[in-house]
Computed example of a mutant assay.
Amino acid sequence: MEDFVIVSGCSGGGKSTLLAELRRRGFATIDEPGRRIVAEELSCGGRALPWVDAVAFARRAIEVSLADRATADAGARWIFFDRGLIDACAALEHLTGERVLQKLGRLYRYNKRVFLTPPWPEIYATDAARRHGLAEAVAEYERLTSVYPSLGYDIHVLPKVSVAERVDWILTSLAC
């Protein structure tokens, strides 16, 4: 779907803050599946957490991402996803070797332009939902910089500028 725009990249690179600014400007946004799953699992004592059962977590992220796509407002001009199906499939494939990326990644498409937040050590922080360190976040980022082009997407690495400038940069890139 041309109107489904992925914002992905390095954990702790400012994706959630960026999506909040897009939302403030009136754009439709979909929050990161992983953060929603972690909040739900922590609230009910679940085990589908990246630091407890990473495979179960990745499988849940795929389910949530598919549900997000199915319920996204088809009438919105742009819908910005904080991560999504490709990221979840890449994680599962990395963990298990299960070949889901090519199948699901080719079946469920997003806008050709994918916006990646690069590693940004100066703003990186852990919290209750992000317990991994910067090195692990960078390794994931490097995987994603290969995964997206392998599926025919064009990567646009976001500059390390203010949130407002990043949003303006994305909108200009999309010719909004």
Score class of each variant (00 low, 15 high):
residue 5 V to M: 12
residue 5 V to G: 08
residue 5 V to E: 11
residue 6 I to M: 15
residue 6 I to R: 01
residue 6 I to F: 10
residue 7 V to E: 06
residue 7 V to K: 06
residue 8 S to C: 12
residue 8 S to G: 12
residue 9 G to Q: 10
residue 10 C to I: 02
residue 10 C to Y: 00
residue 10 C to P: 08
residue 10 C to M: 10
residue 11 S to V: 11
residue 11 S to N: 14
residue 11 S to C: 13
residue 12 G to E: 03
residue 12 G to K: 03
residue 13 G to V: 04
residue 13 G to A: 11
residue 15 K to V: 07
residue 15 K to P: 03
residue 15 K to N: 11
residue 16 S to M: 02
residue 17 T to P: 09
residue 17 T to K: 07
residue 18 L to R: 09
residue 18 L to K: 03
residue 19 L to H: 05
residue 19 L to S: 02
residue 19 L to V: 07
residue 20 A to T: 06
residue 20 A to D: 14
residue 20 A to P: 00
residue 22 L to M: 11
residue 22 L to F: 07
residue 23 R to E: 15
residue 24 R to D: 11
residue 25 R to G: 04
residue 25 R to N: 08
residue 25 R to D: 01
residue 26 G to N: 08
residue 26 G to P: 08
residue 27 F to T: 08
residue 27 F to M: 08
residue 28 A to R: 13
residue 28 A to T: 14
residue 28 A to E: 15
residue 28 A to I: 01
residue 29 T to Q: 06
residue 29 T to W: 02
residue 29 T to V: 15
residue 29 T to H: 07
residue 30 I to A: 10
residue 31 D to E: 15
residue 32 E to R: 02
residue 32 E to M: 08
residue 33 P to H: 06
residue 34 G to P: 02
residue 34 G to N: 02
residue 34 G to A: 10
residue 34 G to Y: 00
residue 35 R to P: 02
residue 35 R to V: 07
residue 36 R to P: 00
residue 36 R to I: 06
residue 37 I to V: 13
residue 37 I to Q: 01
residue 40 E to H: 13
residue 40 E to M: 12
residue 41 E to R: 11
residue 42 L to W: 04
residue 42 L to H: 04
residue 43 S to A: 15
residue 43 S to V: 05
residue 43 S to F: 08
residue 43 S to Y: 05
residue 44 C to A: 09
residue 44 C to M: 12
residue 46 G to R: 05
residue 47 R to V: 12
residue 47 R to L: 12
residue 48 A to T: 01
residue 49 L to V: 07
residue 50 P to A: 10
residue 53 D to T: 00
residue 54 A to V: 04
residue 54 A to Q: 13
residue 54 A to Y: 03
residue 54 A to G: 04
residue 54 A to M: 00
residue 55 V to R: 12
residue 55 V to D: 05
residue 55 V to M: 03
residue 56 A to C: 09
residue 57 F to Y: 14
residue 58 A to E: 05
residue 58 A to P: 05
residue 59 R to S: 06
residue 59 R to F: 05
residue 59 R to W: 08
residue 59 R to C: 06
residue 60 R to M: 11
residue 61 A to I: 00
residue 61 A to N: 06
residue 63 E to R: 09
residue 63 E to W: 01
residue 64 V to F: 04
residue 66 L to V: 12
residue 66 L to S: 06
residue 67 A to P: 00
residue 67 A to L: 10
residue 67 A to F: 10
residue 68 D to L: 04
residue 69 R to E: 13
residue 69 R to D: 07
residue 70 A to R: 14
residue 72 A to I: 03
residue 74 A to F: 04
residue 75 G to A: 15
residue 75 G to S: 15
residue 76 A to C: 11
residue 77 R to C: 10
residue 77 R to V: 13
residue 79 I to W: 05
residue 80 F to M: 13
residue 81 F to L: 10
residue 82 D to V: 04
